[in-house]
Design a protein around this nucleic acid. Structure first.
Lengths: 222, 222, 222, 222
DNA sequence: AATGAATGAGGATTCATTCAT
DNA sequence: TATGAATGAATCCTCATTCAT
């Protein structure tokens, strides 16, 4: 619940504040980020921040929500309803990667929600963050199972859960040192290499998914 | 690189300090945890902490490494080499869950490594954390693929990556608010319920894995 | 490099802070002086000091530079270019003494620069402190040697060095316990006596200088 | 007043402690020097230091007194009573320089006595430090004035004071950054140069002294 | 609405000294 | 006598937030 003022100021300034806040929180984490630095970066007076937000926490929360909105617009926009699940998932992975590479700060904010001492943020943000993709995945799996594109013996909810898990780690590996190191251990991919293997990882992921989700007879025919 | 003193004091005191540190860091995160509070909880003088550790950061790092050692001992100890991958994985999931329920603080420390501003910790910890399980999973998959227990068309590295991803989310859902909410959205399981559905989740996970990893012909026979 | 804020606050407050800082640093030395005490004395919040200065060290450095500026204004102001060196030197000794008696803290700060562990301050301050008087003395000696007021066989640079040495010890004996004790041993003057022998010391110094610097023939005529 | 124990331990250990203490105090100054570091350097337990000394202050005081004893032994030892003042002074300057170059820490301790907040040390040390040279200089001047080697119109006490002043600055310029910078300004001598101009400075000093102290007729004859 | 100086609680770290072994 | 772990007061500096202009 930011203050009214935030919506009354010039949109450029608002965007600047939100962008710099997202970057700063992503760089330092909530605790180590400081409002004076934010004011500097956003070229705004320290006092002004408190005309826009109730508190640092309020600022953080709003930045996360705003990030989520921007993420959704970027990722779900080009989606065509009638594509099969494999195509939709591939599209989401690809546009998700595009978005994250352009705005690495947002996925870091996401990862932060599950870190220590952030429960109060999780309470307000997590459901909002997870719900949409969970529903979409389950709907698509159900629909395409009916269509025979997905194996019939599938635990749909769990499959959605697994898809999302892979998605999270896929995006995380684009920005988080830990996830890059982890990926290095598992897939021997160096996400920090000049010639980043994003596309390779993406294709391997999608291929893997198909191996698993497609019905056995599909393989016989394919 | 804690100071020598840490290894010279009474093991009970050392354990108390490490335990309280792990709990405090897990409760508050690195930044918000404070050394005075740690001293109180561990019933040790503030100054003594600096006889044991170079700095708060050094303390954090060592607590994480120590946590990893304890985790490994707890989880890998009962493992029998000749069990098939399904049984080994189930055992790891089960003993992992047991460990995490007893020491929720440790998995929270793990999640923290991938949060904002923790890259310097990731640099020192992540590989150590991920390597062992990555290797084990890949070895088991390779071995059991040869034995015909795992489908032959498998991208072994990616499957290991997926198994680990599910493991991480499984354990996380035992302790992290965010992951609990996420699981609620995907699997409609309330991990905070009195009658915790851990066992159910575990069985569902193992069953799901079998569906995916077992060779098709296996299904025909089973 | 104090922060901008220092120059934006009310001059009275700035002066109060600088004055109290100079006094405190002079009383205790750099290490033993503490910022909380300074805040108290200057009737300013502790945090405010850090709006004015980058650090304690920055504060110290600026206080020294400011002291130098004030010293120069007080001492060099009444100087008349065409006075002979004896009169100019006497004037500087006298106004220097006046300044030091009014602001004993400044000369203590000067003495501090040459004490242990203060090299980093010396690097930034010493040249600035010494240069002006060195040049003035050498110029006057050169000029008055040409005029026949100073003996012709003089090592001008060394004479300037010696004049300055005497000046430093003269001023130091007004404030430093060590230098007072030293002077007691050499000149049997008790600088701490109620009826302070400053004037006597000054006259004796000037007389001594004349004995040494004046050309022999001058003595014959005088 | 160190504790008895100091005199009972092995002289090598005592020397090591005193040497390291002198060096440490010279490097850091009294306040910033710490007893733990001293214990490390002297390869002695921290607790042992408190078997030797009442306190840090007691340690500092004793180190200074010990330094003075060593200085005196080194500097006054080779002195021949019947040398004229010029030769004796030159000898003292030269052996003083030798001593200081070998033990730079001692002169730094001397400079420290006159710095801020060290009055309590000055009260106990300064007289002891200054008295001997003051007396010697005055005696020599008196004797050699009677011998006609020193000009008759001399203010003997003041001349002694001046000689000592030059001596202090001469020695200081061998070790103190501030004094080196000062000397650079006055004499354009770089005491830090590889080919250190110590000898040049010494000769120039002695020559200067002669110019000043010798009676005029001496010059006519010389 | 914008500004930025003021505030003071909070938190990491240091260090002289003690004392049990 | 030597040791070094324990102690806690002391001290530098940070930073969210307020408020007068």
């Amino acid at each position: 619940m930011p203050k009214e003022t935030l919506m009354l100021i010039h949109p450029d300034k608002r965007d600047r504040v939100l962008h710099e806040a997202a970057c700063l929180f992503a760089e330092r984490g909530f605790s180590r980020a400081d409002m004076a630095e934010l004011a500097n970066r956003a070229k705004v007076a320290k006092g002004s921040l408190y005309n826009y937000f109730e508190s640092k926490e309020d600022c953080y929360m709003f930045v996360c929500q705003d990030a989520l909105d921007r993420y959704r617009q970027a990722v779900y926009d080009g989606l065509e309803q009638d594509w099969d699940i494999y195509r939709q998932v591939e599209h989401i992975f690809r546009s998700g990667a595009g978005f994250v590479l352009e705005h690495p700060e947002y996925i870091i904010l996401y990862l932060n929600i599950s870190s220590a001492g952030m429960d109060r943020f999780a309470d307000q943000l997590s459901q909002k963050v997870e719900q949409q993709f969970a529903r979409l995945l389950k709907e698509l799996l159900t629909r395409d199972m009916a269509r025979g594109l997905v194996r019939a013996d599938l635990d749909i909810a769990f499959a959605a859960h697994m898809l999302n898990s892979l998605y999270i780690f896929f995006l995380s590996s684009l920005v988080s040192r830990h996830h890059q190191i982890r990926l290095q251990e598992y897939l021997e991919l160096d996400m920090k290499a000049e010639n980043s293997p994003v596309e390779e990882l993406l294709e391997r992921t999608v291929k893997f998914l198909k191996t698993f989700l497609k019905p056995p007879e599909e393989e016989n025919h394919g």
